[in-house]
């Protein structure tokens, strides 16, 4: 098998894996990005192949009311109720028959209907058909109850549909917020990924003894990724650096301090700093108090320093 064939096989696998992805989710960067347009085109072609496989299923015409229900929902008519079918004419045209004296339905007396010639027997006396009338009434009552339950069910379905629409809208809003705050969110995710990575190296920073500017309970932790490039510093317990002052982080590489960034703290709040580069050969880290904005070489008192050297790769 040639490299090209192997490459194509990988792209087919990627298209197949796409079956498990949420196709309405925002585009994700490829794991092996960047790559050529040819690869993107091939993945696209194989995705279309998969889309065409669906055409193997025989088509099915949806019930006509489904289209109206969908459109009613999107038009905001979320309480649309589908009226039950009209009863058949024959059901409505039950011939009037006399009820027995005192017969009731749901506590209401059943009034005898006016006599109809058809209800009169050959003898001229009223036909004794009240059992049939009672059965018809019970049947109508059952029909009414069924319709009532059916309407209730339809209302619940409409509510469920409405809730689904609301859920989708909320998901959309969340996605929009994520898009708006995408940079910050991505940075947070990156930091989270760094500090929770099993390969991360943790370098504690402790107060420098005898240094008045370093409260005994202050501390810092420097998380260094396995690539020794990405790092994240978390500092807690230091007071604000003071007017026109900042804290400055230094990496010590080859015995020389290299400035790595400045930060300040709100009273009682932690601070953090991160970047994607670290000088080669960094062994130690330290934090000093410097003029606001930082300086090229340390001048101020050292407040925190690492207690153990970083392993050099």
């Amino acid at each position: 098998m040639t490299n090209d064939e192997r490459h194509e096989d990988q792209l087919i696998e990627e298209a197949l894996a796409g079956l498990e992805r949420d196709v309405t989710a925002p585009g994700e960067p490829r794991a092996d990005a960047p790559r050529g347009a040819d690869a993107e085109t091939l993945v696209r072609l194989y995705t279309e192949v998969l889309g065409l496989v669906a055409y193997d299923a025989p088509p099915a015409a949806p019930a006509p009311e489904l289209r109206e229900r969908v459109l009613a929902l999107v038009r905001g008519d979320e309480t649309m109720e589908v009226e039950p079918d009209e009863p058949q004419a024959a059901e409505l045209h039950t011939p009037p028959v006399p009820f027995p004296p005192g017969a009731t339905l749901f506590g209401q007396p059943l009034e005898p209907p006016p006599r109809h010639p058809a209800a009169v027997g050959p003898s001229g006396r009223p036909a004794r058909r009240w059992p049939l009338a009672l059965a018809a009434s019970v049947a109508l009552a059952c029909l009414g109850l069924s319709a009532w339950f059916w309407l209730g069910l339809e209302q619940q379905r409409a509510e469920i549909d409405s809730l689904r629409v609301q859920r989708d809208r909320l998901e959309e809003q969340v996605a929009e917020l994520e898009r708006e705050d995408g940079g910050e969110l991505a940075a947070l995710r990156q930091r989270l990924g760094l500090v929770t990575s099993p390969a991360v190296e943790v370098m504690p920073l402790r107060p420098v003894e005898g240094e008045a500017a370093a409260p005994p309970r202050s501390r810092g932790v420097l998380y260094v990724a396995a690539d020794h490039q990405h790092w994240f510093l978390s500092v807690d317990g230091l007071p604000p650096a003071g007017p026109e002052r900042d804290y400055q982080l230094w990496f010590i590489a080859g015995g020389k301090p290299v400035p790595a960034g400045t930060f300040d703290l709100e009273p009682g709040a932690p601070a953090s700093l991160s970047a994607e580069t670290m000088p080669a050969g960094t062994e130690l880290a330290a934090i000093t108090v410097e003029p606001a904005g930082g300086v090229p070489q340390p001048t101020g008192p050292m407040v925190l320093k690492s207690t153990e050297p970083l392993k050099i790769l």
């Binding site: 196709v23 309405t24 585009g27 696209r44 995705t47 279309e48 998969l50 889309g51 065409l52 669906a54």
Partner: peptide, 11 residues
């Protein structure tokens, strides 16, 4: 990323 047909089919 995909045609409309494929997009709908995959959803």
């Amino acid at each position: 990323r995909s045609s409309v047909s494929t997009w709908l089919v995959l959803i």
